[in-house]
Design a protein around this nucleic acid. Structure first.
Lengths: 237, 237
DNA sequence: ATATGTCCGTTCGGTGGCGAACAGAGCGAA
DNA sequence: TTCGCTCTGTTCGCCACCGAACGGACATAT
C-alpha cells in the first residue's frame, strides 16, 4: 500500500478539511489518494455512480452531452469540491460526463460507503448540502454566461477557474478542447486566445497555456468569475 | 377562516400528493391555499426565503438577474413542483427571482415550519431530494438549450412547459415578457411566434396565447422538452 | 532526413440574433 | 368619439459566431 504523499497532506481537499476529524477519518478510512489521468472519464452520463472523488491537485470537468456534436461544460470540480453530488440527493446516476482536465490525485470513496457515512454524519450532510447549493448557483451563473457573454470573456473566466483548481499558472489544454468546453468553434477560441496573448495576458503553444497576468485576465473575464468566488466564500464559510 | 376549495382538492400538488397522509397533514396543517396574483414577485433574488410554495394551478418563473437589462428564466414551477428548494439544502436565500407567471393558488408553508418538518419526515426529505435532482438536471438542459437552440424551438418548448403547468391550452403572456424569459429581443419572439401562428400551431392576440395543435408544437420544439418530462417521470416515479 | 500526426492561423460566405426606431392595430377611459 | 396606452409588425444596418476548408508550424517516431 502506497504511503500518503506530502502533497496530499499539505494541500488537502477543502471539503474534507472542513469536516470534524472523526467524520473525515470514517469517510476516508485507510484509503490512499488515487491518481487521475489526464482525459480519463470518471463517469459517463446516465451510468451508475460507483465512486465519489475529492480532488487534491487534479481537477474535473462536468460536461453535458447535447444533440449532434455539441457539448458544453457546466461545472469544474477541483480542490474546492467533489464529484458525485447526485448521491447526496439519493440518486445514483448523473446526467453529466466527468472528464479529468488536469492530472493529479483525489480521495476516492465507494458510493455505498459514502451514502452510509452521509446518513451517519450530520456535519457531512450540512457541508455537502451547502456545496450543492453553491453548485446550483454556479450552474445558473453559467447559463447566463453562456447565453450573453462573448467568447473572449468566457475564455478568460475559464482560464481563471482552471488556474484556481490547478493551483498553477500553467496547464495543458488545446484550443480544440477549449472549444468543446465553451461550446464554440475551435477558431473562435484561437481568435480569443490570440487576442489575449497579443496583450501579454496569456501565452500558449501547442497545448500548453500559461497565465502571465492574473489581474488583467480578471479584467478581461466577465463578472461571472467573481460572482462564483463570492458565492462559494459566502456559503461555505 | 376560508374553507378549502374543491379545486384545491381535485387537482392537488404532485409533491404533496406523493407524501404519506400524516406527513402531509403535519406539513400543511390547517392552512388554506393562498392565491397567487399574476406578476407577483414571491421572492427577490438574494433575500431571505420566508415561505415555500406548492402550486396548484398557479405557476412561477425562476429568473436569474444578469448584468444590464438581460435576464433569463432558468426554471418553471407548477403543480409538479415547489418553490423554495434552497431550504432543503439548509440555505435560506436563493439567487433567483420568483415571479408568478400564471395566476392560481398554492399551498404556502412558513420557512421554519418547513425546515422542522423536513427534519422530522424521511419521506419528505427523500421526495424533495429527488425533486432537487430533477431541477438540477433541467437546469443543465436549459443551459444547453439556451446556448444552441433557435428561438422558435425554444419558444415552442416554453409554451409546452407552460401549458403543462397551467393545465390549460391558453394563457396570458406578451411577446415582451416572453422575450425576457428567453433572453432574446421582443422582435425575435414576434418573428418566431408569427411563424408558429402562420402554421396554425398557436394563435395569439394582445397578450393571450392559445395552443391549437399540441403535436405540431412538440415537433417544433427542441428535444429538451421531452428530455425534461422523461427525467421527471424517471426520478419521481 | 523524412514522414506522420497534432496543433494553430487564416480566410470565405452565410446566418441568427442584436439595437434602434417607427408604424399600425386593438382596447379602455374620458 | 377621441385620446392614450399597450401590444404587435416591420425594417435597417450591424456583428459575433457558424461551418468548411486549407496551409503551415512544430513534435516525434522511424
Amino acid at each position: 500500500m502506497p504511503s500518503k504523499s506530502n502533497k496530499g497532506i499539505s494541500s488537502d481537499n477543502a471539503l474534507l478539511a472542513a469536516l470534524p476529524a472523526e467524520d473525515r477519518a470514517r469517510l476516508i478510512g485507510s484509503e490512499s489518494p488515487v491518481h487521475l489521468d489526464f482525459e480519463d472519464t470518471l463517469h459517463e452520463a446516465g451510468k451508475p455512480i460507483t465512486h465519489v472523488y475529492f480532488p487534491i491537485g487534479g481537477f474535473i470537468s462536468l460536461i453535458t452531452p447535447a444533440d449532434g456534436r455539441a457539448q458544453l461544460e457546466v461545472g469544474l470540480v477541483g480542490i474546492e469540491g467533489m464529484l458525485g453530488v447526485s448521491l447526496i440527493l439519493g440518486v445514483d446516476t448523473s446526467p453529466l460526463r466527468a472528464l479529468v482536465q488536469g492530472a493529479g490525485s483525489a480521495w476516492r470513496v465507494e458510493a455505498r460507503h459514502f451514502q452510509s457515512e452521509l446518513e451517519r454524519s450530520p456535519a457531512l450532510r450540512r457541508l455537502l448540502n451547502r456545496y450543492l447549493y453553491v453548485l446550483l448557483t454556479q450552474l445558473t451563473q453559467s447559463a447566463i454566461c453562456t447565453r450573453f457573454h462573448l467568447v473572449e470573456a468566457r475564455l478568460a473566466r475559464w482560464l481563471l477557474m482552471t488556474r484556481d483548481r490547478a493551483q498553477a499558472n500553467h496547464f495543458h489544454i488545446t484550443h480544440e478542447f477549449l472549444a468543446y468546453m465553451l461550446g464554440v468553434r475551435r477558431v473562435g477560441v484561437t481568435g480569443a486566445a490570440s487576442a489575449l496573448q497579443r496583450r501579454k495576458i496569456i501565452r500558449y503553444a501547442r497545448g500548453s497555456i500559461a497565465v502571465l497576468n492574473g489581474r488583467a485576465l480578471k479584467a478581461a473575464a466577465c463578472k461571472c468569475y467573481a460572482a462564483d468566488l463570492k458565492t462559494y466564500a459566502r456559503i461555505m464559510a
